[in-house]
Design a protein around this nucleic acid. Structure first.
Lengths: 192, 192
DNA sequence: CGTCTATTTGAATGTACTCAAAAGCGGTGG
DNA sequence: CCACCGCTTTTGAGTACATTCAAATAGACG
């Protein structure tokens, strides 16, 4: 639910009026599994809220290898914020893992809601701040913990993601090869 | 110069009036080399602009190892944004590498400037968005490029940092041990 | 000058990697 | 409904890179 998602992030309820105004700015969209929502290099002018389904974003390096940046299940927001805010070409590709039901907020809708609803302005601030803090924490963990420990933490904190996402994408997210994650899992199971 | 720093980030000039108002909200502060500006675990209620000197932020993991998150030389902003925005204890320690001359913006000053100066509101948005994009890019590079290449890129993009910061801190920033960075550098020089 | 810290170097170890191939799983069409 | 195909996952063997432990050298600061 997008309403509770917003309310929990800002720590206060929205009035019905505020919510109606905001939701009126969003458009529903459905996409099929494997369909690409944002192409790396294209301009990304929307924010996407996941009502149903699963997506992920990734970046392709010089050697042609893909690196998973983020997963987004129900109740997550996903986009290429760099492109969205700067107007420059997107750094990432966002692709659906399953058929998805999305709510789309355009740049204009974003501006309108920030200008007219202080709570929404606050919400989006909090959203990107949280994203920033997560990114920094991920960097720190990547350097300070072995892949096995990072995998265990992911299982603890996001069991839903581990369940629904193919293992080779989890491996990419953790920064190891699929073969390595397979061995890591083997080790974990053998130890119990 | 803080004025040009802001103007370049928002892509438009500030009027003298706007700048005077903003600069009036900031307080100068000087700290000695090795002095700690923000202690991990304390609440961080300020943003710091570096007028002169050099600082860095780091995080200490469960095993007691420090991991460098960010460097800040002249014309950089530094803080623990997580703590600053959430009001929770800081995740990072910020320490001076050299004697520093700083400009301090308190949380109230931050709010006042965002409320009264749309350009400053925009500036801080851009600042954190850029920080977020950088963090994501750093994650991607960490996974897709070897330490040697990442070191070379750092030398290219931030020669000032590489010059002024001790090597073992650069190593920590790159996610390798000081011994490894020493060997990496040896390789680079031998090849030329 | 001497002490403390940073950097370099050496040798052995470990973890993740590549290449390669087998096994498992899911979806499609006959 | 089953057989086949493609893709994911697992496993094996050898390799590469960074790590650890340890010690020597170099630099900075008082």
């Amino acid at each position: 639910m997008i309403r509770t998602n917003i309310e929990s992030k800002i720590g206060q309820p929205l009035t019905d009026k505020e919510f109606e105004f905001f939701i009126g700015l969003m458009k529903p969209q459905t996409i099929a599994a494997r369909e690409i929502l944002i192409h790396e290099g294209d301009r990304c002018t929307n924010l996407y809220f996941v009502e149903k389904g699963a997506l992920y974003s990734y970046l392709t390096d010089d050697a042609g290898n893909a690196h998973v940046i983020q997963f987004a299940l129900e109740d997550y927001w996903i986009s290429d914020l760099y492109s969205f805010f700067s107007g420059k070409p997107a750094l990432y590709t966002v692709e659906a893992l399953e058929p998805c039901q999305l709510l789309v907020l355009s740049k204009e809708g974003f501006k309108t809601s920030c200008d007219h609803l202080p709570k929404l302005d606050r919400f989006f601030r909090v959203l990107i701040q949280a994203a920033y803090v997560n990114a920094q924490y991920r960097i720190a963990r990547t350097f300070s913990a072995e892949a096995e420990q990072r995998y265990c933490e992911l299982v603890e904190t996001h069991p839903d993601i581990v369940q629904r996402v193919p293992q080779f994408l989890i491996a990419s997210y953790l920064g190891v090869k699929p073969q390595s994650l397979s061995r890591i899992r083997k080790n974990i199971f053998e130890r119990r």
